[in-house]
Amino acid sequence: MLLQLAKLQVQPERLTRSWIGTILDQQSEIRSLIDSIPSLGRQAETIAADAWPDAIRRAARETKLPAQRCPPTSAWTLDAALGFDPPDPAPRGKRPQ
């Protein structure tokens, strides 16, 4: 999920319905894991913070943009990431190529 949020941070104009679906699916999966494993929930913020550097490295490779476009530490708290409701993507003809 952090990968998708990092990509959204650097390329919001590239948001697609598929990308939104991935974010929503991952939010649901993470919530289910936290509900199923309460001890995981207590560590989730730390796990997410530790995963951020990998997320921005992967986002940089996928977007072909420099990793420096993302902050070195995540601006997303776990609650914010799980509660994020992605906007609708721009109409197809309006998206830059």
Rank of each mutant, 00 (worst) to 15 (best):
I23R: 01
S28N: 08
K94S: 03
D79A: 15
L33Y: 01
G93T: 06
E62N: 03
G41S: 01
A60Y: 06
A67K: 14
P38I: 00
D50W: 09
A48K: 00
R58A: 15
T16V: 03
S28V: 05
G21R: 15
S36W: 00
L82M: 05
A81L: 09
A67G: 12
Q27Y: 11
S74A: 14
S28F: 07
G83H: 06
T73A: 14
L82I: 07
A80P: 11
L33F: 01
P89V: 03
A80Y: 11
Q4C: 11
A48D: 05
G83E: 08
E29A: 12
Q43P: 02
A67Y: 07
T22M: 07
T63Y: 04
Q26H: 11
L15C: 07
Q68P: 00
P53T: 14
V10S: 08
R92I: 11
P66T: 02
D88Y: 09
R14L: 06
D54K: 15
A75P: 14
I47Y: 09
L3K: 07
G21F: 04
T46N: 12
I56Y: 04
R57A: 15
D54G: 15
L15P: 06
A90D: 02
R61S: 15
A75L: 14
D88T: 10
E62Q: 05
P87C: 11
K94M: 03
P66G: 05
W76Q: 13
L33V: 00
P12D: 12
I20G: 08
T16L: 01
I34G: 01
F84G: 14
A49F: 03
L2K: 06
Q27N: 09
Q4W: 04
I23N: 02
I47D: 01
T46Y: 09
Q43S: 09
P86V: 08
W76H: 13
I34W: 04
A51N: 11
R58D: 15
V10H: 02
R61H: 12
P71G: 14
L5M: 08
A75S: 15
P72T: 10
P38Q: 02
S18C: 00
R31N: 06
Q26D: 14
P87W: 12
Q11M: 14
W19T: 02
D85E: 08
M1W: 04
L78E: 08
M1N: 02
K94F: 00
P86I: 06
V10M: 06
A80G: 14
Q27A: 10
W76S: 13
A90W: 00
E45F: 00
L5Y: 08
E29S: 08
A6G: 05
I20S: 11
K94Q: 04
D50V: 10
T16C: 03
Q68M: 09
R69V: 06
A55Q: 10
K64R: 13
P38K: 01
I23V: 10
Q97A: 15
A48L: 09
P66C: 07
L8C: 00
R95F: 00
